[in-house]
């Protein structure tokens, strides 16, 4: 870890809506979004990851084995207001597409911003899971989102 990051390390406990929690480290260090790539994952209806592409593995800092079978909320950064995810679930459970700007937490405590889109996977009229695709956001959208999320936290 670079020396200048060490002073910015925070040890925190993240509580999730399902009553579970985990210890995590948080660094004030942004990892740039990779050019031209899409981060792709799929989950079951409970948000448990069933597929992760290589870009997701690289950006999250977890191995594929660590991601598969884990709830997608492992990526949630403490700076993200829970109301944003409540809106996401409300939208996709109603069968609709959700777009939003998200600050994600990496395994090493650094973060990366994405423009995320989540859609329900409908097979024979039944929602069997969700696909989430993330792409590179603009700096202006990140700034707007940071300002908005501070008011919601």
């Amino acid at each position: 870890m670079p020396e200048h990051d060490v002073k910015d390390v925070r040890d925190i406990v993240i509580n999730y809506h399902d009553g579970t929690s985990r210890k995590a480290i948080v660094l004030d260090r942004e990892v740039p979004y990779p050019e031209g790539k899409l981060i792709v994952s799929r989950t079951d209806t409970q948000g448990v990851i069933t597929h992760a592409n290589q870009a997701f593995v690289e950006m999250s800092g977890y191995t594929e084995d660590e991601l598969i079978g884990t709830n997608h909320y492992i990526l949630r950064h403490p700076d993200m207001p829970s109301v944003a995810f409540a809106g996401l679930w409300e939208t996709i459970e109603a069968g609709n597409k959700w777009h939003g700007y998200v600050k994600n937490l990496r395994k090493d405590g650094a973060y990366y911003w994405v423009k995320a889109t989540v859609i329900p996977n409908i097979r024979n009229g039944v929602v069997v899971g969700y696909t989430s695709v993330r792409r590179k956001p603009s700096r202006s959208k990140i700034s707007e989102s940071e300002a908005l999320y501070k008011t919601l936290s």
Partner: peptide, 14 residues
């Protein structure tokens, strides 16, 4: 096929 189509759906902003 369905997986690819779902992915494409996420790329269409509407």
């Amino acid at each position: 096929t369905e997986f690819m189509i779902d992915l494409i759906d996420t790329l269409i902003d509407e």
